[in-house]
């Protein structure tokens, strides 16, 4: 009798295991592909902004934080301690989780450094010097205002043909946009169905960098914006650029 019960229990377990076999845990990565005109972004290369200005980028760098994986049943797996720095000279392949199981329908992430790490009054506020030098939030990444402590969320730097004569190397035809402050922290959310099956899952997203300048004409608007807080005269310009983020990030693919 005991053997029969054990056999039945084993059979039930085996049945469910087979049923769940398609949901083994996987490593999940996020890969951000910086692009311009649909191709991998090359630094110091001519592109045309959405407003028709000839531009080149010399630096593109931004933080990604507060990632959530959204399950089919709307539950979310949140990663509050994962901070990544995307850079125009890096592969930008970020490990989100070593082992996660389930069926998912999307992903959300923030652009910048949220106030839990960027506000001295925040509950998780940590002085920048406490991070190891290779941590995304280390001041060694030059994404930190050390005279006015706080993180620069994004740096967009390069040249822009503001005189519209087709020449980019003229004096003063540079641009430098440094974003920051909680009012400029935005979330990107994308739908994408995936199920963990044991293999690594690399969620890729293209970031079409010139789209940050959609409706932002570098000839007429500020081309150097470095606000020191959200009341600063440069801040509205920074906000315009950040508010184009949804036009920058494409759909998720593997």
């Amino acid at each position: 009798m005991k053997f029969r019960i054990a056999f039945i229990l084993l059979s039930i377990t085996a049945f469910f295991n087979i049923g769940c076999g398609s949901e083994k845990s996987s490593r999940i990565f996020l890969k951000i592909n910086l692009t311009a005109e649909g191709q991998p972004l090359q630094l110091n290369t001519d592109y045309t902004s959405p407003e028709g200005t000839l531009i080149q980028f010399s630096m593109v760098r931004f933080y990604v934080s507060q990632i959530s994986l959204i399950k089919e049943n709307n539950e979310e797996i949140h990663y509050p301690d994962n901070y990544y720095l995307a850079d125009s000279q890096s592969e930008n392949l970020f490990l989100i989780d070593e082992a996660v199981t389930g069926k998912f329908k999307g992903i959300r992430f923030g652009l910048g450094v949220d106030s839990t790490r960027n506000d001295s009054s925040g509950i998780y506020a940590i002085p920048a010097y406490e991070y190891p030098a290779d941590h995304a939030l280390s001041p060694a990444n030059f994404m930190y205002w050390s005279w006015n402590p706080g993180y620069i969320f994004m740096k967009l730097e390069g040249k822009a043909d503001t005189s519209a004569n087709g020449i980019l190397n003229e004096i003063g035809e540079t641009f430098s946009i440094h974003t920051g402050f909680k009012e400029a922290y935005v979330f990107i959310e994308r739908n994408y169905n995936f199920t963990t099956k044991g293999d690594d899952i690399i969620l890729q997203v293209n970031a079409e960098i010139p789209n940050f300048f959609t409706n932002y004409n570098l000839r007429s608007k500020k081309k150097d914006a470095h606000p020191s807080n959200s009341k600063h005269e440069d801040f509205p310009y920074v906000l315009e650029i950040v508010n184009n983020s949804n036009l920058v990030f494409g759909n998720i693919f593997e």
Binding site: P127, A128, Y129, P139, A140, F142, S146, P149
Partner: peptide, 8 residues
């Protein structure tokens, strides 16, 4: 916090 500023 100040120390980092002049170094970098």
């Amino acid at each position: 916090t100040q120390v980092i500023a002049p170094v970098q």
